[in-house]
Nucleic acid binder design. Sequence first.
DNA 1: ATAATATTTGTGCATTTGTTCATATATTCA
DNA 2: TGAATATATGAACAAATGCACAAATATTAT
Lengths: 102, 102
Amino acid sequence: MAGQGKDLQADAEEVVILAELFHQMADPTRLLLLMSMFYGEKCVCELAEKTDVSVSAVSHQLRSLRTARLVRSRKKGRHVFYMLDDDHVKDLVSKGLEHVRE
Amino acid sequence: MAGQGKDLQADAEEVVILAELFHQMADPTRLLLLMSMFYGEKCVCELAEKTDVSVSAVSHQLRSLRTARLVRSRKKGRHVFYMLDDDHVKDLVSKGLEHVRE
DNA sequence: ATAATATTTGTGCATTTGTTCATATATTCA
DNA sequence: TGAATATATGAACAAATGCACAAATATTAT
């Protein structure tokens, strides 16, 4: 063994929760969904159209995102509109894109 | 169909690369590894100790992180020291933690 | 050279994942 | 009411994932 120094302080539970947050953004389809909601709410069928994934698959992924509190939804007539739950998600996506684009 | 508005502009390839970036941070063990390197390089055995995961598993994960360019390594004697590859990773982890802590 | 330490690599396996398909529920319209 | 549209849900299944274990490689010390 060798080396020494501090590390980012966080308890095990926080790490698991944080991993789950990143996990939600780690799938191209879910990421595309999040990006589609970047500037405002979108209904399921519109999201399905944008991502070119079946409505069923999109619905499954949206549920996953909602359970993890990355998005929330609002019902209007027979449509359900989804939107990003808070600005942290926007920040993370922006920062990530920045990194990818170097 | 209903709703309208822009979305974050990014081509399919960028989305896949970004998803891969988040994917690397989406596992508790890898995340803990990244956080352990937050303030500086650490050798493999030290990282294994911190994460309480076998040296073998840590090495596998470090390879994954290195391939995805989230970390880089430096050899010194019989030790290999790993460090974060650039500050974007630090930013993302910080932002993520901020979100988790609300 | 041999032993000890540090790290890597290959394989196998149980678990998780994302999708498709079929079906169910909810809302609007005729 | 019944048909049409929008969304959600459950089951099944192939693909990917993370880990343990064993074996290989590399470096240092004796």
